[in-house]
Design a protein around this nucleic acid. Structure first.
Lengths: 219, 219
DNA sequence: GAATATGATATATTTTAACATATCAGAACA
DNA sequence: TGTTCTGATATGTTAAAATATATCATATTC
């Protein structure tokens, strides 16, 4: 896929999954065939603007041109308005928990191999914190969707860490750099989810937060 | 053009004009030929997403998927961040003033023909108010860009009004309905420009308003 | 008035999105 | 275990975006 479009396409896919819709369900709400939706989401095509807008609107989204300098503020507004993703199937949640636990375990093992690595500790701390959030009742599928993109590079790095430990080598600098990035990703994910907790009634609502269920009266 | 894409395309064109760029200048900053930009802006093509993003980024814009219920809040943020459009050429401003004066004069004449029509008075009041804003030093090119889309239907309605006056007929209900829409458009334009006045230093700045010249260090 | 700039349009070619239709492999469910 | 669901892939066809290049009519500038 073209790198320039992948952000938008990823958001579109995440929105579809957050609404608990399959590609076939989305296809039924639009004029876009399921096979084409699959190709779009996999990055195999440079979609037309009219098609993007149609798919977006079927997901209660609008496309907006935003001045670059306003992007952080707009992202804050969007994040505040985002509904909690739907846990579509129990299997998803169970899978998310299993994958999470495996990842946390693997990070702990890596720390045993390189106890002095501060970045590994950071990763573990973030994951531990996420585990606490999960114990507090946070739905894990949202975490799953967010964390998934950080898992793959982390698995790579953990593999490199194990390999380095076996050959009594120092960690390659590239692995350290990537590890920093992954640590930062998990920290951001943790912060996003912590701030988005809907079960904290004492937190003051943002002034521009919208009422529940507005504009949802459609197919 | 497809109706669904015209909003985005109009915003793209307005952003280009607001930056004082010609189609050729924009073409030089991207890989998109001037003739294609013309076709895009005229609505003659259903642009690919990668092309849209490339053009947007050349204009310091990012494309964003926004939940529909967050759209009003996002638009508020975007409007606060929008720079005052550049008056590129003195001829533009002079032309805008001439067209504006002609329109105001035509509305006055129409009022003389139908003095009881409250909607005509509303249109005239809005235009008069815009004239006051112009006298206060507001750049007219911004007004020109906003008002242009209301001029054409208004000219049609003024023609129908003159025709009705000539045949001593009542105004057709359709003309009255369209006139209401145009009156509302001008009222909104007036309000937008009045609230956007940058020469009112006593007004409190929105909390999320961004600093000047952030992120502009590029070609 | 001449030169320059601008947005729009035309022609021809290449590439690809969009679509219909079918089917696959793997996961989930009963 | 059988059925259903899901995302992905394949084949073939049509329509149109993207591009290069040229040129036009109009407006602006000097």
């Amino acid at each position: 896929m073209s790198y320039v479009t992948e952000d938008i396409i990823r958001e579109l896919k995440q929105a579809r999954e957050a609404k608990g819709l399959s590609q076939r369900a989305l296809s039924q709400r639009t004029h876009v065939p399921q096979s084409h939706i699959s190709k779009i989401e996999s990055g195999g095509t440079d979609i037309r603007l009219s098609s993007l807008i149609e798919l977006a609107r079927a997901l209660d989204l609008e496309l907006k041109l935003v001045p670059r300098k306003a992007l952080p503020a707009v992202e804050t507004v969007v994040r505040s308005a985002a509904p909690t993703p739907v846990a579509t199937r129990p299997a998803d949640t169970a899978k998310a928990v299993r994958e999470f636990e495996k990842t946390l375990e693997a990070v702990k093992e890596a720390r045993a191999l390189f106890p002095d690595q501060a970045t590994l500790k950071q990763v573990q701390d973030s994951l531990q914190s996420l585990k606490s959030l999960q114990s507090a009742g946070r739905d894990f599928t949202a975490l799953f969707a967010e964390a998934r993109k950080a898992y793959e590079p982390l698995q790579k790095q953990l593999a490199q860490i194990r390999e380095a430990a076996e050959t009594v080598k120092a960690l390659p600098p590239e692995t350290l750099r990537s590890l920093h990035q992954v640590a930062e990703s998990f920290r951001q994910i943790r912060n996003q989810i912590a701030h988005g907790l809907p079960t904290a009634p004492s937190l003051p609502r943002p002034a521009y937060q919208l009422g529940e269920d507005e504009g949802d009266a459609h197919g």
